[in-house]
Simulated scan of single mutants.
Amino acid sequence: MAINLTKGQRIDLKKSTGATLTDFCVGVNWGGIESRGFLGLTKKVAEVDLDLSAVLLDSQGKLCDHIYSPLYKPELLAKFGLPAGKLMAAGGALKHTGDDRAGDSGGDDGLDNEIITVNLAGVPQNVGQIFFFLNNCGQEDFSQIPYAKIRMFEGTPTRVKDVFASYNVAAEAQYKNRRALIMGRLYRKGTEWKFAAIGDATEDVFVGQTVARIAQEYSNM
C-alpha cells in the first residue's frame, strides 16, 4: 500500500517485501484551472505550465548537477550562476520526460504530466541530496491550481507498476502569491537513501531563484 506523506515526514525507501527501492519514477500530476462561462452553462479550462525540476547537491551543499527545462533562457540562468537546462543528470541516473505546458484539461486523469526517472545505484557518490521542485511559468499561483501531486512509483513513465509514496498539495488560501513549490528531497543517511516531503511554497517567479533558495536555506536540513 502506498504511503500518503505529510509535510515534513521522512521515510525509508523500504518496500513491503523488505527490499530497497532503487529504481523508480518521481512524477507530478496537476490540473488546469477551470472556470464557468455565461450562467454556468459552459466550462473553460486555462492551461497551467508547471515545470518539474531537480537539483543534486554534494555533501557540502554545493550544486553539482541539475535537471530543468532546456527552454529556460540561458541569459537569465547565467544571472544566477546556473548552466543551461537539460533533461538528464548524473550520467543518465536521472532522466526527465520533457515539458507539459497545459496540465489536465478534463479533471484528474490519474496520470503524471512530468516525470523524472531515478536510478539511485547510478548516482555518483559525491551527491548527498536530490531536491525535487515545481515552478509555474505562468501568472497563476498555487491557490488557484486545483491540485498538484507528487508520487514515487516503480515502473516506467508510461506504466505504473506500484506506487510507493505520494504527497498531495490542495488548492488552499495559504498558497496565494506562491508560484513555486519545493516538494521533497532524497538524501543519503549513511549507506542508505531516504526521502523527506517538504511541501514549501515560495514566491519565486523563476527557477534560478528556487535553486538559490534550496542551496541557501535547505542544504543543511
Rank of each mutant, 00 (worst) to 15 (best):
M1R: 04
A2E: 12
K7A: 15
Q9W: 04
Q9F: 08
G18P: 01
F24N: 00
V26G: 01
G27V: 12
G27H: 01
V28D: 01
N29D: 15
G32Y: 08
G32Q: 07
I33Q: 07
F38L: 15
F38D: 03
L39K: 01
L39M: 14
K43S: 15
K43Q: 12
K44W: 08
V45D: 00
A46K: 07
E47S: 15
V48M: 04
D51C: 09
D51E: 10
L52T: 11
L52E: 07
S53E: 03
S53F: 10
G61V: 11
K62C: 02
K62I: 00
L63A: 07
H66I: 14
Y68I: 10
Y72I: 04
Y72P: 12
K73F: 05
P74L: 03
L76H: 08
G81H: 10
G85I: 08
K86D: 00
A89V: 11
A89W: 08
A90S: 13
G91T: 10
G92E: 02
A93G: 04
L94P: 04
H96V: 06
T97W: 06
G98V: 12
D100I: 06
A102N: 01
D104R: 03
D108F: 12
D109F: 09
D109I: 09
N113F: 02
E114D: 01
I115W: 02
I115C: 03
I116D: 03
I116K: 06
N119G: 08
A121V: 00
Q129Y: 08
Q129K: 14
F133Y: 12
F133R: 04
F133I: 11
N135K: 05
N136I: 12
N136L: 15
C137H: 13
Q139F: 12
I145D: 02
P146T: 09
Y147N: 01
K149W: 00
F153W: 10
G155E: 06
T158F: 04
V160F: 07
K161T: 08
A165W: 02
A170V: 13
N177A: 05
N177M: 10
R178F: 04
A180M: 04
A180W: 02
A180Y: 08
R185L: 13
R185V: 14
R185P: 07
R185K: 14
K189H: 10
G190A: 11
T191N: 11
E192Y: 04
W193A: 06
F195H: 00
A201I: 10
T202D: 05
V207N: 10
V207L: 07
Q209A: 13
V211S: 03
A212W: 06
A212H: 13
R213L: 11
R213A: 13
I214Q: 00
Q216M: 09
M221T: 07
